[in-house]
Computed example of a mutant assay.
Amino acid sequence: GDQGVMVGYACNETPEYLPMPVVAAQRLVTLLEISRMTGVIPDIGPDGKVQVTMEYNGDTPVRITTVVVSVQHKEDTDINKLADLLDEYVFPLAFDGMPADDAEIILNPSGKFVQGGPDADTGLTGRKLMVDSYGTFAPHGGGAFSGKDATKVDRSGAYMARYIAKNMVAAHLADRCQVTLAYAIGGKDPVMVDVNTFGTGICEDDCLAAAVRKVYDLTPAGIIKQLNLLNPIYSRTAAGGHFGREDFPWENVEHMSDLAAYIV
């Protein structure tokens, strides 16, 4: 592969093992796309993005405070009617089970959003790294996932780090877990395996990192085999985020007993 640093993250805030505002944002964009494709909300276009701000009390999510929704639409779209349709069909599902009753909803804050895509905004930087991963909740190694095959650890290593972190939390070995892998070009084994449970782990982070090295084959070939990364699955990662979606193999929960067995 390559040299670089990859970070994976998981927490027990949601069934997806992701921070609640990240899940809310992913649900919103997914529901917007479904509404567009099915015609439930007519006249909206394929371009758009959302931003969810949430208040925390320590590590506990308290309430969604602000939601910014920017969505492309036709020239003659009635924005007030669009807002009503979002209130009826999108927001209730997106925020189901979340404290969002008092959230401020800001729709298309710049006014009209008629022209979209690269036709409207040249000089784009490609996929947004934090949107594809964990928002502001975890650091990022800096390498984009998209546009690379699985031999590049920017992609496969990031997926493996998420896989390990999620299994740690699912096994109740920690409430929050960040796994960091680092590689040197020309070497198959990682030069660093770091686990950070932010004080929520059942043992010291060093012992968890040692267990990870024993349980998982962290070579690029081992990761590709473990996560079945030679299959043509990547087009689905182009929108909606790379994590928290059960149809991706790095979201599988398994090997939890193996992890527990190696903890000393």
Results as ranks from 00 to 15, higher is better:
Asp247Val: 09
Glu33Lys: 11
Glu254His: 03
Ala100His: 00
Tyr262Cys: 10
Val7Phe: 02
Met130Ile: 15
Val22Phe: 08
Asp87Gly: 11
Val191Glu: 12
Pro109Glu: 06
Thr65Phe: 11
Val22Ala: 04
Ile164Leu: 10
Glu55Tyr: 10
Thr77Ser: 12
Thr14Ala: 09
His172Asp: 15
His255Met: 12
Thr125Val: 14
Gly241Ser: 05
Val169Asp: 02
Asp121His: 13
Asp154Ala: 09
Ala165His: 03
Val40Gly: 00
Asn108Val: 06
Ala238Arg: 05
Gly142Arg: 07
Thr197Phe: 04
Gln26Met: 07
Thr66Val: 14
Pro19Arg: 07
Asp247Ser: 09
Pro109Tyr: 07
Val195Glu: 02
Gly45Lys: 15
Pro139Phe: 01
Gly222Met: 08
Ile34Phe: 02
Asp217Cys: 12
Asp205Ala: 04
Tyr159Gly: 06
Lys49His: 11
Lys74Ile: 09
Cys207Gln: 14
Tyr9Met: 03
Gln178Gly: 05
Gln115Pro: 01
Arg162Leu: 05
Asp247Lys: 08
Asp132Ile: 09
Lys214Pro: 00
Lys148Gly: 09
Phe248Tyr: 13
Lys112Val: 04
Gly48Asn: 02
Ala161Met: 09
Val195Ser: 01
Ala100Tyr: 01
Gln115Thr: 15
Asp78Val: 02
Arg27Glu: 13
Arg27His: 15
Pro118Met: 06
Gly187Met: 15
Leu107Ile: 12
Asp102Thr: 14
Gly142Asn: 08
Cys207Ile: 14
Gln51Gly: 08
Ser156Val: 11
Tyr17Arg: 09
Ala24Asp: 02
Thr197Arg: 03
Ala260Ser: 12
Asp132Tyr: 05
Ala239Met: 12
Gly142Asp: 05
Val67Ile: 14
Phe248Val: 05
Val193Glu: 01
Leu227Trp: 05
Ala260Lys: 15
Thr200Asp: 08
Ser110Asp: 15
Gly123Tyr: 07
Tyr216Glu: 00
Asp96Thr: 12
Glu251Val: 00
Val52Leu: 08
Thr197Tyr: 08
Lys214Asp: 14
Gly187Thr: 13
Lys225Val: 01
Leu18His: 07
Gly48Ser: 06
Thr237Lys: 05
Asn196Asp: 15
Val29Glu: 04
Ile105Glu: 00
Thr14Tyr: 10
Thr122Gln: 14
Asn108Pro: 09
Ile224Met: 00
Arg245Lys: 13
Lys81Ser: 10
Tyr183Arg: 00
Phe145Gln: 07
Lys81Val: 12
Asp194Trp: 12
Ala182Gln: 11
Thr180Gly: 08
Asp258Arg: 11
Asp43Met: 13
Ser35Val: 06
Phe91Leu: 15
Phe137Asp: 04
Asp102Cys: 10
Ile223Leu: 06
Glu251Asp: 14
Ile202Ala: 02
Glu88Ala: 14
Arg213Pro: 02
Thr77Lys: 11
Met192Ile: 08
Arg162Gln: 07
Pro109Phe: 08
Ala170Cys: 06
Val68Phe: 03
Thr30Glu: 14
Thr180Lys: 10
Met256Ser: 10
Gly117Phe: 05
Leu181Phe: 11
Ile164Gly: 02
Val52Asp: 00
Lys152Asn: 10
Phe243Val: 07
Gly142Gln: 10
Ser110Arg: 10
Ala25Arg: 01
